[in-house]
Write a protein that binds this DNA or RNA. Structure first.
Lengths: 341, 341
DNA sequence: CTGAAAGCGCTAACAC
DNA sequence: GTGTTAGCGCTTTCAG
């Protein structure tokens, strides 16, 4: 392991000068700097992050707090992680994956006490999440992927549910539909008060109202079976619904089956939208579903970047909302003449 | 930040004694130890990992080298990561997610030079992977999820393809099928010489032979479209095939479409198996597909555990093979009388 | 502009 | 058994 001392010796300077030359932390004569840089290159010098961190109190390591997967994990969560890891890497940071095994607060207390990480990235944030409070009080820099009910000045990157709902509603309204239903995320499988479920529910209702579209909500199927049942119940109560947005991919499966069972067809009799699921999943359906694809990788990247930003300097809160991307598939079409099914 | 010195002062002992009491690194009087432990607890003391690592050359951090996602990522990769992170956490280790942005070797050189990690976990290992060689030469402890062609004494956890193929073949043979086809992974979307593709190919062929089943291979569709085309080509050339194992979930979609297009039905006319895909994905198909589900989380856990094991003591190579789990769905049935379609 | 020296928090010899 | 001392490799005063 070649150390800074080796570099300094080879360049015939003091260790502190070598350090300065490499970090630009104080003025160094151009000639000296070049000697040091050459020596470092020749020796393949890599600064020891531990030593640096011990001294500077900054490790350039971020932790991504990883919730225990409840109902099996989705691609979305993975993309947060890869996006964050990539963005961190590009900025010279590392990303630590910290499973919340013991319970989030305990895990955080443990993690932050170690002096190992400069900041924490939170995901799967509940509206009344307790973790932000804890971190704020502990003075640990952090950012959220998602957001609490009242994020205040906390940094976050989240889905722009308002825009997403508007886009979705505009899409179906543009096709001529007059009545839309939403199957929200099931309550199990997610933390209570799960932001995306709540916000999507609110924003779809608002967008439909603003657009003058009749709107039905309240169904929250979390499996194929529940999805099918929900669809049957929906049509029994609201036979004039011609467009349906589903937030759970398994529920969508059940809907598709139920549609076929009723002798209906997609998209002729029903326009079906998959919300918050990846195009990769949408491709597995027939017909290929129109999707509102969450910008998961992007959110991961943003989260990491804003956290690093925050670490490197103060400033106003960084709060970013990114809408889902509307990918029009073959499950969207104008409603039948006369509407209803 | 409360340090060991604070603890020592409060317990009225020397710092080194406090250290020893807490780590059990040398005999300490019972009374003293209890005083130290109480002091530590009262102060909420957490050892500084950087300082400890700097001194002891051991950070208890593992890196998971994360390949750049090629054709979009699967759940499988995510489960490696979560499994490894969990197992590491249980053993007092941390897991660093390192994207191979710049190219694997460069990334490794960088990473290992930092003194930040005790060992490296490799995934997406190609048969002639260059990373193991590099790590071995650099003297960095590592383990693989997957394995090279000749793993020699390298630690690894991988899928037991032989057992998996035997189970799959036994399943279809047990139903009475006489001729099986395999759609292997496409060549793009994976590193050349991707172990799972090669080994699955070999082992399915062997298992079919041993079981006296006719066997067709050579098709490697990587998308729905290719899957459909491959199925058409397959039936044109081998109309007597009644069972098909598909390794790519998108290709499976195409197969299902093509089956319907031909007026055939699953499972009456074709028994369809999804290999190496998760049950979660299989659920999205209709009928729900019979699956050979990879033990991804388990492999991640095993990989982390064997690496930590290796770090803590020498010993014989740790090499573990875990078969896929056969989850029988509704896409398996005996062939029609007379076989063929 | 450069060098010498102190010290981050901890572990590990070495004395007592 | 316990305390004292010397670093791990680096950054950062402080002199020169």
């Amino acid at each position: 392991m070649t150390s800074l001392r080796d570099v300094a010796e080879r360049a015939r300077v003091a260790v502190s000068t070598a350090s300065a030359a490499l970090n630009g932390t104080r003025p160094v004569a151009a000639a000296t700097r070049r000697r040091v840089e050459r020596a470092a290159a020749e020796l393949g010098y890599r600064p020891n992050l531990l030593a640096r961190g011990l001294q500077s109190k900054r490790t350039r390591i971020l932790a991504l707090l990883f919730p225990a997967p409840r109902g099996g994990f989705g691609l979305t969560e993975m993309q947060f992680a890869t996006g964050a890891a990539e963005a961190a890497g590009e900025l010279g940071y590392h990303l630590l994956l910290s499973p919340e095994s013991a319970g989030p607060i305990e895990e955080l207390r443990h993690l932050t006490g170690l002096g190992l990480v400069d900041g924490v990235l939170l995901m799967e944030v509940a509206l009344d999440d307790e973790r932000p409070r804890f971190l704020a009080e502990a003075g640990v820099p952090f950012a959220m992927i998602g957001r609490t009910r009242e994020p205040g000045t906390i940094d976050y990157a989240d889905i722009d549910f308002a825009a997403t709902a508007r886009d979705a509603v505009a899409h179906v309204a543009g096709l001529g539909h007059r009545k839309l239903a939403l199957f929200n995320l099931a309550e199990d499988g997610h933390p209570a008060g799960y932001g995306p479920a709540v916000r999507a529910g609110e924003e779809f209702a608002r967008a439909a109202r603003e657009r003058g579209l009749a709107y039905v909500a309240g169904f929250r199927p979390g499996s194929a079976e529940e999805g099918g049942k929900a669809f049957d119940d929906l049509l029994d109560a609201h036979p004039d619904v011609t467009a349906l947005a589903v937030m759970d991919d398994r529920a969508a499966v059940g809907v598709i089956t139920a549609v076929a069972r009723r002798g209906l067809r997609i998209p002729e009799d029903l326009t079906l939208l998959l919300v918050l699921s990846s195009a990769r999943v949408a491709e597995m359906f027939h017909p290929r579903l129109t999707t509102l694809e969450p910008p998961s990788t992007e959110l991961g990247r943003l989260g990491a970047r804003m956290l690093i930003d925050r670490l490197q300097g103060d400033g106003p809160p960084r709060q970013r909302l990114v809408p889902c991307r509307l990918v029009v598939g073959d499950s969207s079409a104008p409603p039948r003449e006369g509407g209803g099914s």
